[in-house]
C-alpha cells in the first residue's frame, strides 16, 4: 500500500515541456500507478494514462523475441498518431517516463530532454522528497 501521489516531482516534469510541440509528461511506476504529472494534464486522466502506459510497456517488452533476442532490455516505445507522438522510456528502477508531443516535434530533442530528466529524477528519487512541505495535491 502506498499513498496516492502528491505530485511532488511534477515541477520537474514541466521542464521537459520546454521542447517546442511537447504537450504533457507523466511519471509512472511499473505497477501502473501515477507518480507525477505535468501541470496541464488532469489528475484523473493522468491516473488512467499511467495504467494504460504500464500496459504498453509490458506488451512492448513481450515482443523482445520478435527483435531476435528474448532477453534484450526494453528501452523505449514510440507511438505515432495522426496528430503527434507518445514517447515512453525507462526512468530508473521500476519507473517509466512518458511524454506526448505534436506531430512536428524534433524527436531527437525530446528524447534527449527525457533522458536528461530521467538522470535528474534518478537523483531525486534516491533521496526522497520531504513529505512535510507544501500542501497535498
Amino acid at each position: 500500500m502506498t499513498g496516492p501521489t502528491n505530485n511532488a516531482l511534477g515541477w520537474m516534469l514541466d521542464e521537459v515541456l520546454k521542447v517546442p510541440e511537447a504537450r504533457h509528461a507523466i511519471l509512472l511506476s511499473a505497477d501502473g500507478m501515477l507518480r507525477a504529472y505535468s501541470k496541464d494534464i488532469d489528475r484523473d486522466d493522468a491516473e488512467r494514462l499511467a495504467a494504460g502506459l504500464s500496459g504498453v510497456q509490458s506488451i512492448s517488452r513481450s515482443t523482445a523475441e520478435f527483435c531476435g533476442t528474448p532477453h534484450t532490455p526494453w528501452r523505449q516505445t514510440l507511438i505515432e498518431f495522426a496528430d503527434g507522438y507518445v514517447f515512453l522510456v525507462a526512468a530508473g528502477e521500476g519507473a517509466y517516463l512518458a511524454v506526448s508531443t505534436g506531430e512536428d516535434v524534433d524527436m531527437e530533442a525530446v528524447t534527449y530532454r527525457m533522458h536528461k530528466l530521467v538522470d535528474r529524477l534518478g537523483k531525486e528519487l534516491t533521496s526522497p522528497a520531504r513529505q512535510d512541505t507544501g500542501s497535498p495535491a
Partner: peptide
C-alpha cells in the same frame, strides 16, 4: 463526470 480524488485520502490500494 469529473470526480477528483478527495484531498484527505491517504491510502492507495491496487
Amino acid at each position: 463526470g469529473e470526480v477528483h480524488l478527495r484531498p484527505g485520502v491517504q491510502t492507495a490500494v491496487k
